[in-house]
Amino acid sequence: MAILVTGGLGYIGSHTVVELINNNFEVIIVDDLSNSEKFILHNIEEITGKRPIFYPFDLKRKELLNQVFDAHDIEGCINFAAFKAVGESQEKPIDYYENNLFSLINILQEFKTRKISNFIFSSSCTVYGQADKMPIDENTPLKMPESVYGKTKQMGEEILKDFAQSYKSKICLLRYFNPIGAHPSALLGELPIGVPNNLVPYVMQTAAGIREKLSVWGNDYPTEDGTAIRDYIYVVDLAKAHVAALKSLMNKETEETVIDVYNLGTGKGSSVLEVVQAFESANEVAVPYQICNRREGDITIAYANADKAERELNWKSATSLEESLKTVWEWQKYLESRKN
């Protein structure tokens, strides 16, 4: 059975492709390489022994997407294709709305035409905005997100809910928190283009001397050390959750509408400075940093209640913050070795 993975050479997508292949799924990747690189395809093959079918194009090109569906018997989709930087989304809102929503709609048009079900959407905890209480569970009211990126995720969810209701489709919305880490082989990891927008790759590059100092965006939040708190989940644990969610959808033999929603996180929040200190301790390196003004679009605190995923998908995050951060440093060493 073929599964379409959009953005499958990206950070979370590539790790999920590995887990899908390990679970005997045939994988079709569409990725425009705007936030990934072609060598990741080779590394996936090195890890799994199988090379996924790969199409390098933008999902907004409807005619090419149509050809992919014509060529393969696709039974489901995991959609990672999206711009994802909170700060950048504030600077380029129209680019984010166009890229993140038009590509989703084009895939759903194919699903509608061909009567395909089983759609997993890479959503985000940003759909909750700044929640009133912690931890955040799936019944936490959605608020208008602080960032344009978050708004595209919330709009994407609404589009999918309407699609499922109208066409009796099965969809799953995976709202995950902050993915970190790299594959234990050190052949896959987060590969930001240009200056990183996420904390951990910036920490990694600062420790490696690529960046002079880490910018800590605000130390005046109402938290113990004044820095923002997030729930950092190991990317391989997260990838396994996507496979569990896909199997759950496909096992539901029904023509009725299915809309599953799961939070994916560790259930524990860590501040920016706690992550920096954990990275330094885990890898015995120094990470110089400077305090800067808060960044527009950021919230104060967010961490998950992921009990529903454990109960219904038999999935649970299993990797500690320190273990995850060790894999990050091994990934950085691998990237350095590629330059030599």
Rank of each mutant, 00 (worst) to 15 (best):
A2V: 02
L4C: 11
V5G: 01
I12A: 07
S14M: 06
T16S: 13
N24I: 10
N24R: 15
V27S: 02
V30N: 05
S34P: 09
I44Q: 03
E45R: 15
T48W: 08
F57M: 06
K62Y: 11
Q67E: 13
F83A: 12
E88W: 03
E88S: 09
Q90T: 05
P93N: 09
Y96F: 13
N100S: 12
L101E: 11
L101Y: 03
L104C: 09
E110R: 07
E110I: 04
K112R: 14
K115D: 13
F121N: 04
S124T: 11
M134H: 05
M134I: 01
P135Q: 00
P135C: 03
E146R: 13
E146P: 01
K153E: 07
K153G: 08
Q154K: 13
E158A: 15
I159V: 15
K168V: 06
S169Q: 05
I171Q: 01
I171A: 04
I171L: 01
N178V: 08
A182F: 01
H183F: 04
L187K: 13
L188Q: 02
L188W: 07
L188H: 05
E190T: 04
E190H: 12
L199I: 08
M204C: 12
A207H: 00
R211C: 07
E212M: 05
G218R: 03
D225Q: 06
T227L: 04
R230A: 09
Y232E: 07
A239T: 12
E255A: 14
G267K: 00
G267T: 05
G267M: 07
L273E: 08
V275A: 09
V285M: 08
Y289V: 09
N293G: 14
E296V: 12
I299T: 12
T300P: 12
I301Y: 06
N305Q: 06
E322W: 00
E322A: 11
E322D: 09
E323L: 04
E323V: 00
T327M: 05
E330D: 11
Y334V: 04
E336H: 07
N340R: 11
N340C: 06
